[in-house]
């Protein structure tokens, strides 16, 4: 079926299977920042924002996104670049596969939280897993980034 999606402020006409998930639709549409890390909505590597809400695109039906604002890392180049500067300054990205999802989670967190205590930050990001870094580097980077913002 054909649907119209708004991806990173651009209207895109796309051909999808009826029960397709956004992760697949986005990747087919050339949005390669969105990664598949699991089959069970567990890893957070496909995190994107839909209408300002952080969601796992692997389990979000594409037709549900019609009429909504879909945002991926490609849609926030400046903010993503700045977050990337802080993460890479710590070397905390290592393999980088989970990083775009983490950037989207940080983007949403900034929108959603008022109190950026370490406990709150960790709780908010608990669904974004990383196997390389041991998380400590990410946390150092995020604290520094939030200080600047």
């Amino acid at each position: 079926m054909e649907i119209m999606l708004t991806i990173n402020n651009q209207k895109r006409r796309l051909l999808i299977e009826p029960d397709e998930y956004l992760l697949d639709t986005l990747r087919k549409a050339g949005i390669k920042s969105v990664k598949r890390g699991c089959d069970t909505t567990s890893c957070g590597m496909c995190s994107i924002s839909v209408d300002n809400k952080l969601v796992n695109s692997c389990s979000y039906y594409s037709i549900r996104a019609v009429g909504k604002e879909i945002l991926t890392v490609e849609g926030i180049p400046e903010e993503a670049g700045l977050i990337a500067d802080f993460i890479t300054a710590e070397g905390a990205e290592q393999c980088g596969f989970c990083s775009p999802g983490l950037v989207m989670a940080i983007h949403s967190m900034k929108h959603d939280l008022d109190d950026f205590s370490m406990e709150n930050i960790k709780h908010y990001l608990a669904g974004n897993s990383c196997r390389c870094s041991g998380y400590e580097g990410q946390h150092r980077a995020i604290l520094k980034y939030l200080e600047v913002k």
Partner: peptide
């Protein structure tokens, strides 16, 4: 609900 998956999951 606080520890049912992550925020992304709980938003769905």
């Amino acid at each position: 609900v606080r520890q049912t998956g992550g925020v992304g999951l709980r938003n769905m």
